[in-house]
Amino acid sequence: MSHLRRPAPKELQPTSFAFTPENQEKAKKIIAKYPEGRQQSAVMPLLDLAQRQTEGNWVPTVAMDYIADMLEMPAIRVYEVATFYTMYNLAPVGKNFIQVCTTTPCWLRGSADVVDTCKKELGIGVGETTEDGQFTMIEVECLGACVNAPMMQINDDYYEDLTAESTKAILDALKKGEKPKTGPQSGRKGCEPIDGPKVLKAFCGCGAAPQDADASEGDA
């Protein structure tokens, strides 16, 4: 189990937490979505909001307490949720939080190369953070993009159809502060067959020609 799934040590825990006025408004809207008496259901989106607000992309214990107060529930019920879902980080992570999928389909398609490239390019091991605090890399289980395996998630974006080279290119771009193109890196569109469309060709007017690689990406 990664250390990100254990509460950060006391030295790293901030002593106070409050939503910014902006997030306060957002929180109000989120809570209002749930019927009277069911406000506690808002705990998950609020934890996400807290994580996005916190420097280091994580949920400190005080933030959980803050949310517990806000929703009038025992703090332990919030802890239970935050520790159950792996998308909540319990300790700070780098600015670019890399989650490489290493479940079977991705592994069969070369996820080991992706992990190795990350290790080599960033000089960190799995679960570690670079010294400048820019990158954290972890291995995760299936992220549901097997058709575009191998893949990794960096913050909110999916990068798919990776190879050692494309992984390096992405990391280089991130190091320069650029935002690399998200989605498949092989040039295919979305999750269609890798060698172009196979069915209904007569109807979509695209013939057998490869799709425009710049076409907008479907939701990952």
Partner: peptide, 25 residues
């Protein structure tokens, strides 16, 4: 502790094989 004693101290934290029963902090 939740229902009878009314002190929310105990919980089941983490998940799967890592599940632990206790107060988290």
């Amino acid at each position: 502790s939740e229902e009878v004693a009314g002190v929310g101290t105990m919980g089941a934290v983490y998940r799967g094989e890592d599940t632990e029963v206790g107060p988290y902090i």
